Amino acid sequence: MFEYCTDPDVLSTFEWFSCYLTNGKHLLFYKSFGLIILLLFITAPLAALLGLLAAVAIKSKFLLLRIFSKAYANIVRGIPDIIFFLFIPITIDQLIEFTRHKIKCPEIVDSVWQGSDFVVCGAAKLPLNSDPQWIHDIYGFLLAVFSFTIVYGAFAANTFYGAMNSVPQSQIETGKSFGMSRKQIYISIIFPQMWRYALPGLSNLWMLLIKSTPLLFLLGIQDVVYWARELGGSKTSIFQYPHPDWRVWYFLSLLVFYLLLTKISELILNRISKKIYVPI
């Protein structure tokens, strides 16, 4: 903030807005845009890797591995994303705390489920109540990354599976006739060629991932949606910067941000597509 921001009541319109838009909460609002970008760049490769492994597992010779991989891909794709974003973090969090409760507080024999409440000893909490806020923020962010990876890994698995099946079977049979092992066929024939078939589906998944990031606020993370609602709501005279309901302007800024993000993504993906496409 600027030096003249000590008394907003006596400022001109321009100075008032310059102080208002650079206060502490607005700086957190601006940082939340970076949080979205960070989530995308961490989640996208993890989901792609998980999807690739699941797709290979679906084509595995081992029956149990095939069944598990198919069940994962089909079940996750068939359930609304919002349910997983609410279910997975709560489940993982309670599972970790329940395990820590049994280890750190063995003297407590009461059930951790008391009616609709989940109660563990203080030492089993993760993060601990005494931990600084940044540890709580990182923990919540990691749960969000895990949730997005599980959901979009299932969609990526279906995309990779279709791309692998699109590689001409004649080339695979040729590799077998040359005595190539299953591993060599994947590395030398299937993986290099599947990308041109997988890229359109992966591009769509990237766009869907971008559109899903506003759901972060459901996980208790102070993302762009949280701050748009918090800052845009009407503020009375008890606040340092009182103003009427400005939520429409804040959400308009989110609209511009997501449109720019999708447009930039579209341009980059189109360039990648042109570089890797080889006519069949």
Rank of each mutant, 00 (worst) to 15 (best):
M164D: 02
N165K: 15
S166L: 01
L231S: 05
V248T: 07
V224R: 00
E173A: 09
Q169R: 00
A163H: 03
T236D: 15
G232Y: 10
P214A: 07
L199H: 10
G162W: 07
M164L: 04
A198L: 13
M207E: 07
S203L: 05
T159W: 07
W246K: 11
S212Y: 07
I187H: 11
A228T: 13
P200K: 10
T213V: 01
P200N: 11
E230F: 15
S234W: 06
P192R: 11
N158K: 12
M164H: 03
Y197C: 06
T174N: 09
R182I: 02
L231Y: 12
S188C: 04
G220H: 06
M207G: 14
W249E: 14
F191W: 13
Y226A: 06
I190R: 10
V248A: 12
I190Q: 01
G162S: 14
I238G: 02
L218I: 00
Y197P: 04
D245K: 13
R229L: 04
K176G: 00
Q169T: 08
Y197V: 01
L231Q: 04
S237I: 14
L209H: 12
I187S: 08
W249R: 00
L209A: 05
G220W: 09
M180H: 10
R196T: 05
I185Q: 09
P200W: 09
P214N: 13
V167L: 03
